[in-house]
Design a protein around this nucleic acid. Structure first.
Length: 875
RNA sequence: GCCGGGGUGGCGGAACUGGUAGACGCACAGGACUUAAAAUCCUGUGGGGAGCAAUCCCCGUAUGGGUUCGAGUCCCAUCCUCGGCACCA
């Protein structure tokens, strides 16, 4: 049944073609594959599955870059190999097509982004098809297609309608929380503002929504954002660098924005990452980004105030050295603790700090700060310590307040020196220590009951003390912040929310999805901080048909990451009109067995997608904890001058011209032969010529000058040596593909060809099998040869050659004779020659004798099939 | 500064759990074919030295140490480089 769609033969082969002309062969086979749907994945069948995914591209106006085919070819080789090994392969491609460039182009030309996006996709599709990649094109998808973004919106609503239950460490429907509040209030949940069931009922719709917003996984909040005036949009912290590098400026301002509560998943994102087969550096980056740190929260009473200042520290053991407190400028206590005479300068200082982004604050080396005029009490020493405000403390991390311990912290030391604040060491530095703050290990000093304890023990003891006194507790904090989800753009998924005039909001009812983007007559920024959608009056204004209440649609759209957060799920069931993906198909195909894409997505895409996946997992829509089991990055391809490719340097290589000149097979082969997949490596035109020459050699080995199969390929028995090489080649190529080491697999194919050239008669059976080995790498050439060898079906599902371990074994091996570790002689012996025999041969060897004569043999090391090493000493 | 990856011929890169360093390709040189060139095929090619020669000797995987019969591979220190993070308390 499997091959029924492949059995028709292609009748259009011009049998007289004798030269290797890639353009001719390649277009013909690409057409064949397309017509026969050769690479269509089968629906759930009783066959091992494998899901191999490329990170889908943003179809930019400049077309495919040579970096794209690198990863795509790698997965293509892998999947073609797996098909031949009997796997049901899912290998799809699609377009991450929402994005700022199309919108900016629309603003300049007033051409709808849908049109430019469509054109760009057409270019990308053509270029990708020209490489002969074995995608199942029936599953092609486009994030800007309403039938796709309908489900992006659905997922948004699902997230909006969920909360994270810290007791179960799990996502639950918001309905469950509403029920709980109605029944028991907030009693079993930790919250700043607790309430009873009765309170809840009295709150009213708006009041209840405000409470729920504090729990929903998607929520609106007033947050300081990175606003880019030229782009007319906010940017996520992660995106700021990208745009500032391009020369855009970003300012800090508070805005009401949609956020996603990714922080609730920090621990799980960290924990579950341990199971993943990902590059160490990527896991490390994610760990870094999440930034877990263990420590304690401690309350410091404020003189003349009934509320204490709560600080977070990872070094509670140093509390006896806490000689002052520092609040972030944004800290809510700043106004209350600042004494009237300091008020004016303080407000001034705060306003300045607010304008700076975290980035700017980081760049400034000098620390600035102001004394508030108030004092707190160090609960350990019971001494009064001054409260300062300084912008080296960030509101977004910990509690936005620190206990400053200059003796053990470099930043605090610098600040303390600058403002003449006391410094007390509470950890004894080693005698030879000459620095300022000492952050290393050592016994506690000046710390009363902690004295003598090492850091870990002191931490333990002081935390117990703090908890006993009820002034704090052990906690874990994360650097990870909630994900700023809204963008002031037109070309993105509309957020399906309506804001009503009574201050409440509601979601667009599910049957009304997709909420389509309105057509705009003119593409221009709204002129306010809203997206251009605000200009579409008809679209924005809504009236509730039942109550007549007026409302406005949410005008923010989703970030580009949204569509790529779940596309891998849609590929499993791309046309399903009822569900984002049927559970049956999801269970069959997921998780992704191999995912290849750029390292630049190490934190952004890969973290966001994992987050959404976990929400969907908790709610039962997906069956795996993690989406991407094995991840690899392709290395950057540099220009021929070993520098980054860029238009300004004029070293950009265009895939179109490479394919035109050498063909897709040569392009594929070269990109794989350049070096290890993950490494950065320079382009080389001569290298392309080298692999092109190899392909021509393969061609000429099979095809005689008159275009028929070369008569040297005949039904003869292979020599033992050639047969051995063949079996070794099958083994090596198979192993290397499994390990994604394509460069060494190709070199083995070259070795085989070099040997085959030396033969007068080439055994047909082996040569045909060799064509199959070539197929994943140079599929067009392989198909062509396969057909000319008399097969009338595609080789895509031919069984991968098997090797015989016995036949691959070398019968003779070279053994080296060393004297004192230096190679003095080499001989050929039958494999398996015993140690005793080896020793005897070595002792007779004239080269060996020359070096041992007149000396005493102190030691003999003999390794079978490898070497004999004689250690001699002067007599 | 911290974390992670990596330094191998003229170049891209090979080298299994420590066991012949430089596979394969590029470039280069010589030869064959050709009127000639291109293409193609064959041979050679880490550096230095001795010899008419077959051959032999020394050095060599960033640097300096160490472990070992034996180190590109393991350990320590240093230098360089790429990537990430960076007032994260």
């Amino acid at each position: 049944m499997l091959n029924y769609q492949h059995t028709a033969s292609c009748k259009c082969v011009p049998q007289n073609v004798m030269k290797y002309i890639p353009a001719e062969i390649e277009t013909r086979w690409q057409l064949f594959w397309e017509r026969k749907k050769t690479f269509r994945a089968q629906e759930v069948v009783n066959k091992p599955k494998i899901y191999v995914l490329d990170m889908f591209p943003y179809p930019s106006g400049s077309g495919l870059h040579v970096g794209h085919p690198e990863g795509y070819t790698a997965t293509d080789i892998f999947t073609r190999y797996k098909r031949m090994r009997g796997f049901n392969v899912l290998h799809p491609m699609g377009w991450d097509a929402f994005g700022l460039p199309a919108e900016r182009y629309a603003m300049q030309t007033n051409i709808h982004p849908r049109i430019t996006t469509g054109e760009n996709i057409a270019t990308f599709r053509r270029q990708i098809k020209m490489l002969g990649l074995s995608y199942d094109w029936d599953r092609e998808l486009d994030t800007t297609d309403p039938t796709y973004y309908r489900w992006t919106q659905w997922i948004f609503l699902t997230i909006y309608n969920s909360w994270f239950d810290p007791r179960a460490k799990k996502t639950r429907p918001i309905k469950a929380l509403i029920q709980e509040f109605a029944l028991r209030g907030s009693e079993s949940l930790e919250t700043d503002r607790p309430f009873t069931a009765a309170d809840w009922m009295k709150k009213g719709k708006k009041g209840q929504q405000d409470v729920l917003a504090r729990f929903r996984l998607a929520y609106l909040a007033e947050v300081p954002v990175n606003w880019c005036e030229e782009l007319g949009t906010v940017l996520a912290n992660e995106e700021v660098d990208e745009w500032t590098e391009k020369g855009y400026s970003v300012e800090r301002r508070p805005m009401r924005q949609w956020m996603m509560r990714i922080t609730a998943f920090a621990e799980r994102l960290l924990e579950d990452a341990e199971q993943l087969d990902w590059p160490a550096s990527t896991l490390e980056q994610q760990r870094n980004w999440i930034g877990r740190s263990e420590g304690a929260e401690i309350d410091f009473p404020v003189k003349g105030l009934d509320k204490p200042i709560r600080v977070f520290t990872t070094r509670p053991d140093t509390i006896f050295g806490a000689t002052y407190l520092v609040l972030a400028p944004e800290h809510p206590f700043v106004e209350t603790v600042t004494t009237p005479e300091n008020r004016e300068t303080m407000l001034d200082y705060r306003n300045q700090a607010l304008k700076k982004s975290d980035l700017d604050r980081g760049i400034e080396k000098d620390k600035t700060g102001l004394f508030t005029g108030s004092y707190a009490v160090n609960p350990a020493t019971r001494k009064e310590i001054p409260i300062w405000v300084a912008d080296y403390v960030m509101m977004g991390y910990g509690t936005g307040a620190i206990m400053a311990v200059p003796g053990q912290d470099d930043r605090d030391w610098t600040f303390a020196e600058q403002y003449g604040l006391p410094i007390i060491r509470t950890v004894q530095p080693p005698e030879d220590f000459s620095g300022n703050a000492y952050t290393g290990e050592g016994p506690a000093i000046h710390s009363e009951f902690l004295n003598g304890l090492d850091v870990a023990a002191a931490k333990d003891k002081i935390v117990k003390w703090i908890e006993q006194k009820g002034i704090g507790r052990r906690t874990t904090r994360y650097k990870l912040r909630d994900w700023l989800f809204s963008r002031q753009r037109y070309w993105g998924e509309p957020i399906p929310i309506i804001h009503w005039e009574d201050g409440t909001m509601s979601q667009v009812p599910e049957p009304e999805l997709p909420l389509l983007l309105p057509d705009l007559k003119k593409f221009q920024p709204s002129g306010t901080t809203e997206s251009p959608l605000a200009l579409a009056d008809d679209w924005v204004s809504v009236v509730d048909s039942q109550t007549g209440m007026k409302g406005r649609r949410e005008t923010n759209t989703m970030p580009q990451w949204a569509g790529s957060c779940w596309y891998y799920l849609r590929f499993c069931d791309p046309q399903n009109p009822e569900q984002l993906c049927s559970p049956e198909k999801e269970q069959y195909w997921m998780p992704i067995d191999l995912y290849i894409g750029g390292a630049e997505h190490a934190v952004l895409h890969l973290l966001y997608a994992r987050f959404w996946h976990k929400v969907l997992f908790d709610l039962g829509y997906v069956s795996t904890r993690e989406p991407f089991m094995k991840l690899r990055h392709q290395g950057t391809i540099l220009g021929e001058d070993s520098r980054k490719m860029s238009k300004s340097r004029g070293n950009v290589v265009n895939p179109d011209s490479v394919v035109e000149e050498y063909g897709a097979d040569a392009m594929r082969l070269f990109e794989m032969f350049m070096g290890p997949l993950e490494e950065m490596k320079p382009w080389s035109t001569q290298g392309v010529e080298g692999v092109f020459r190899f392909l021509k050699r393969v061609w000429r080995l099979f095809i005689a000058e008159d275009g028929t199969i070369d008569r040297k390929i005949a039904d003869v028995r292979p020599s033992e040596g050639f047969e051995r090489l063949f079996h070794q080649t099958v083994r090596k190529v198979g192993e290397d593909i499994e390990l994604l080491r394509f460069n060494t697999a190709i070199s083995q194919l070259m070795i085989f060809i070099n040997e085959a050239y030396k033969l007068d008669r080439k055994p047909r059976g082996i040569m045909e099998q060799f064509v199959l080995l070539m197929a994943p790498f140079a599929p067009h050439l392989a198909e062509e040869l396969w057909q000319r060898l008399g097969h009338d079906d595609t080789l895509a599902y031919e069984a991968w050659p098997v090797f015989d371990k016995e036949k691959a074994r070398e019968k003779k091996v070279e053994v080296v004779f060393q004297v004192n570790g230096k190679v003095r002689s080499k001989i050929q012996v039958p494999a398996g020659t015993t140690e005793t025999d080896l020793e005897a041969i070595a002792m007779r060897d004239e080269h060996v004798r020359r070096h041992i004569d007149g000396k005493r043999i102190a030691k003999k090391i003999i390794v079978k099939d490898k070497l004999v090493n004689l250690v001699v000493v002067p007599e």
